[in-house]
C-alpha cells in the first residue's frame, strides 16, 4: 500500500524544529509517524500526518521547504519476527531498503512500517 509522506528541510538552528511542529499543532494536524535524518549541518524530517495537503500548505506559508512523495506502508504482525518477514521478502527479490521507520496502530494492534526502497514497483509485488 502506498502512503504519502512529507519530507521537510530542517535547518541546523535552535528553534527550527519547534517552529515546524508549532505550525502543525496550531492547525490541528496530527503526526502519525515520523523519523528524523540528520547530518552535522542540516536534517530531513519525514512524517506521515493525517492531513497531508493542509500540512504542506501551512508549512510553505511560513517558508519551510517541504516535499511529498509516495512511500510503501506495510502492515506487519506486532510479534517477534514480524519485520524480519518483510525484509526477507525484499532481500529475496534483490530490493534494497534506503530507510524505514515503524509505528503502531493502536486500534487493531498492528504495526506498520514505512519503507523507502530502490525499486518501489518490485517491492510492492514482492510484498503482495
Amino acid at each position: 500500500m502506498y502512503i504519502t509522506q512529507l519530507s521537510v528541510f530542517v535547518e541546523n538552528r535552535v528553534g527550527n524544529l519547534d517552529e515546524i511542529l508549532e505550525v502543525l499543532s496550531q492547525n490541528g494536524i496530527n503526526i502519525r509517524a515520523l523519523s528524523m535524518a540528520d547530518t552535522s549541518e542540516f536534517g530531513i524530517l519525514r512524517m506521515i500526518v493525517d492531513d497531508t495537503d493542509k500540512a504542506k500548505e501551512k508549512l510553505r506559508e511560513i517558508g519551510v521547504v517541504v516535499k511529498s512523495s509516495e512511500v510503501i506502508a506495510q502492515h506487519i504482525d506486532d510479534t517477534p519476527g514480524g519485520l524480519q518477514k518483510v525484509i526477507s521478502k525484499l532481500k529475496q527479490g534483490g530490493v534494497s531498503v534506503e530507510y524505514l521507520y515503524a509505528f503502531l496502530n493502536r486500534e487493531n494492534d498492528t504495526a506498520q512500517v514505512v519503507l523507502r526502497v530502490d525499486d518501489t514497483k518490485k517491492a510492492e509485488q514482492l510484498l503482495k
Partner: peptide
C-alpha cells in the same frame, strides 16, 4: 557552507 531556510 550552511544551508538555511528560504527567505531567511
Amino acid at each position: 557552507v550552511r544551508l538555511v531556510n528560504p527567505k531567511t
